[in-house]
Write a protein that binds this DNA or RNA. Structure first.
Length: 274
DNA sequence: ACCGTCAACCGGCGCT
DNA sequence: AGCGCCGGTTGACGGT
């Protein structure tokens, strides 16, 4: 019995993988990505610091001035340390609108800013490179703290956190999704390790019992007939210390080999031989 | 060059 | 239909 045996039980941890028609999926994926990149090739990092109103004014300034790349770098300097390099994705506007009521208005403002401004990053002219965002330490700490309090977010919490971190709500949402996935993966690894250890223990136990069985079989061959009776068949009367087969009153012998073993509680029912 | 990490994305599923 | 979440995947990036 090995680890595989255990893993084939109902205790599976779901570590297998599903095969999917990769090629079709892949091309589909690439196609959609292309479209997205073309559509949002003017998106830029969200560099807001203060309330969205201020943000809007800043964006309006930029818009009015008709400035592009260089200006956004200046804006970058005005931003808080948290805002540094936080938004490079090309996510859709629809997904930005993941909030309701007045919140949605604020989000739309941010999207608007993304549209009117150029990027202050090393994206190429077509804007179709996917830049890797690294959250700052401060952002990560705040997100972790928040995750410790609640592993899921309601729209309001998401919005508040996004504002606090100067990220887009979608980014906060994605971070929480990925964080939950990481937690789950870690837990799966822990479970797998526990299962492996349990398997080892059971294997050892099995070997020990097999060995014991062999010894008992060997002993059986080397002992007289009466000693070969199953242990439950023979009882010792505590008062007379004679071996009896259990409750057969007609029996005159001190022990019998009964066809059916009977169980006798020597403490409540003394043997008939007494 | 290779590998691990992680933000971002997509499709699917369940819920309302 | 819209939304949120999940599993799987991609691609950028940093470390070796």
């Amino acid at each position: 019995m090995g680890f595989e045996d255990v893993c084939c039980t109902g205790l599976g941890l779901g570590l297998g993988r599903q095969d999917r028609p990769q090629s079709r999926l892949q091309s589909d994926h690439q196609e959609k990505k292309k479209k997205l990149c073309l559509k949002y090739d003017n998106s830029f990092p969200c560099l807001t610091l203060g309330p969205s109103e201020d943000t809007y004014q800043l964006a309006a300034k930029i818009n009015d001035a008709g400035k592009g790349y260089g200006e956004s770098t200046d804006l970058h300097r005005q931003a808080s340390s948290l805002s540094a390099v936080s938004s490079f994705s090309n996510s859709s506007i629809k997904k930005e609108r993941d909030l309701c009521g007045e919140v949605e208005v604020e989000v739309e403002v941010e999207v608007e800013i993304e549209r009117v401004s150029s990027r202050a990053s090393d994206e190429d002219e077509e804007g179709n490179s996917r830049k890797k965002l690294r959250l700052t330490k401060e952002q990560a700490v705040i997100l972790e703290d928040s995750f410790k309090q609640h592993s899921t977010l309601n729209p309001r919490q998401k919005q508040v956190l996004a504002k606090q971190l100067n990220l887009r709500p979608r980014q906060v949402e994605v971070w929480f999704q990925n964080r939950r996935a990481r937690t789950k993966l870690k837990q799966t690894e822990v479970d797998c390790e526990l299962l492996r250890k349990r398997c080892e223990t059971l294997t050892d136990e099995n070997q020990r019992l097999q060995k014991e069985l062999q010894e008992l079989k060997a002993l059986k061959l080397a002992t007289p007939l009466y000693m070969q009776l199953p242990a439950a068949t023979l009882t010792m009367c505590p008062s007379c210390e004679r071996i009896g087969s259990g409750g057969d009153a007609s029996s005159k012998t001190s022990f019998t080999i009964g066809a059916k073993p009977r169980f006798c509680n020597p403490f409540t029912h003394p043997s008939p031989a007494c």
